[in-house]
Design a protein around this nucleic acid. Sequence first.
DNA 1: AACGTCGTTGCAATCGATTGTAAGGAGTTC
DNA 2: GAACTCCTTACAATCGATTGCAACGACGTT
Lengths: 345, 345
Amino acid sequence: MSSPPSRPVALRDVAAEAGVHPSTASRALNPAMRYLVADPVAERVQEVAARLGYRPNAVALSLRTGRTRLIGALVPGIANPVFAPILAGAAEALSSVGYALMVADPGDDPGRAAEFVEQLAARSVDGLLLATASLHDDPALAACRARQIPAVLVNRGSEGIPSVVADDRGGMGLAAEHLLGLGHRRIGHVAGPAQLSTGLLRAEGFERALRAHGVEAEPSLRVVTAAYTREEGDRAAAVLIARNPDMTALACANDLLALGAYDACRRAGLRIPEEISVTGHNDMPMVDLIEPPLTTVRIPHGEMGAQAARLLLGLIGHGEEAGAVVLPSALVVRGSTAVPRSDGR
Amino acid sequence: MSSPPSRPVALRDVAAEAGVHPSTASRALNPAMRYLVADPVAERVQEVAARLGYRPNAVALSLRTGRTRLIGALVPGIANPVFAPILAGAAEALSSVGYALMVADPGDDPGRAAEFVEQLAARSVDGLLLATASLHDDPALAACRARQIPAVLVNRGSEGIPSVVADDRGGMGLAAEHLLGLGHRRIGHVAGPAQLSTGLLRAEGFERALRAHGVEAEPSLRVVTAAYTREEGDRAAAVLIARNPDMTALACANDLLALGAYDACRRAGLRIPEEISVTGHNDMPMVDLIEPPLTTVRIPHGEMGAQAARLLLGLIGHGEEAGAVVLPSALVVRGSTAVPRSDGR
DNA sequence: AACGTCGTTGCAATCGATTGTAAGGAGTTC
DNA sequence: GAACTCCTTACAATCGATTGCAACGACGTT
């Protein structure tokens, strides 16, 4: 009539109540083994289980089967508006098939990322979603290989590991062509970190578009940043402005860098877009509200997360090998770009 | 000489290699039980464990001890710029003491939230961080009580459950007083959903400040929204603008609502702040960059997450009961507020 | 009537760690 | 030298589920 501590109902409770052995109850409740038990018995067990509110203990199940239905995710900043929607997309795709997502945020520290991989491995995650990967010798990737944990990269790519990324080269090409089409010829590039695939590929896409239009890419028109931050964008843009008085546009590898470029332009007294055009990349939330609204490249954040999750599940389930998935980007023209002034600047 | 599948090294492997029983190895490796084994033996076991790269299997440990060192978090939108930094703060505080965070995103659906609580319970999380709570009869909270899972609310409060929230009443009061101080008297309020503590308390803070200044709160100057979205803010602000031609300011319960109000004002041809002042709440990232920069109330997102995590750990560890923690908010004055035009509007 | 088959169910081992209890041996005391 | 500690280690049960194997009874066949 009373049971204050009340241990949660276990399989053995269901079995006892139904008058069968736990193993029989297990089979009656497992659709795949259901055929091994007689119909009336199975129905009785299921009825009892429902009545008692039985929920299988996921921990015990994991110990026995070796699978946790847990996926670990490593992101450089949960609050980063680029990665948050990726996580949301992945979480949605995973939870719909009974998987849960554990997030760990090592920031930009590769060593910390590797440590987190070890911790997640100790928790026996079934797979890993990595948004932190750098292009070469990533310790987190090495840890995955060492522990043989299926892993998929999102947003950033690396060699020999399945990944889901946006078309960084093509996307940046769209931005560059947009500027070229407006008539810009002296275009500065605020490049992303060279150890990240996004930084490298977007720089490539930028230069390729320029060459296709017969414009030579000058070293003086490029500054490589150390991180995707507003401060770095400010610093890099300031250098470019000081170095190239005839520059009429700035193509930035990422929206945060573009915001920093806004700061630098404002400080230099350059009006956007009248005196200098600026483009970003990623179309993160709210860049349509800043003044002027940022012309940028939209990448399918949520879809990237979802596809990466599905790719990972395929890897785990059927061991199906997969290469790199590249999702298309789209140019979003807003108010930060315009035709250059005829007098240069 | 070879072992392709290579089962990860377990305690029994360490014990065998060190020539002792697994139980002895367990005690040698556990600082709390360390005193039960002779020094030379303990050292040998530790040396072997290190050499073999032994990592205790967290799943087995959880099954035996009943604790998983896992905390579940329920948020209405991972990508929401209000909740992302809360999660980041919590994740940081938790990972520093060996806990990991599982996030689930039920959106605004209370039924889905309850279902997620059940799933997290089946995974034996040690506690729950809830950012989704509504004021009354929240099914997710009921599920927590039923399964006796320690839970702490963040950002939003509810009765009888420990919580960490911002000073919603006081914060909204700051915004109202700022507007009153500028000379505004006809101030509209775009209120948040009434079933959320934030919606209710901010409305209270708003009206209390008005009354303290001898201004009567008129029903026609308030519209209650159904959700914290830009669209709802647009809709509500449009209603207020149409209904009150003499209104000179809009105090919004949240930044997203304020952004919607921007849209409505723009459509109505009202310049901000010259013809109408607008305030928000939360100071989410980038509202300093929109045009005009939004005057808003800053709440300590990350600190809220961190404190909630610590509160929860206290609850789990020492069963120490805790009430509601209220963190101070601060007014951030930017460009969306100004003195009202003398001709009313 | 004896035997083989098949459908059901129970038994017991297993996953990897923790922990209460017993047993072993060394040292001390009377 | 017998008895009594105490220190150290081993044994075995336990957490909750899954699953290979054995056993059992009912039935059909010859």
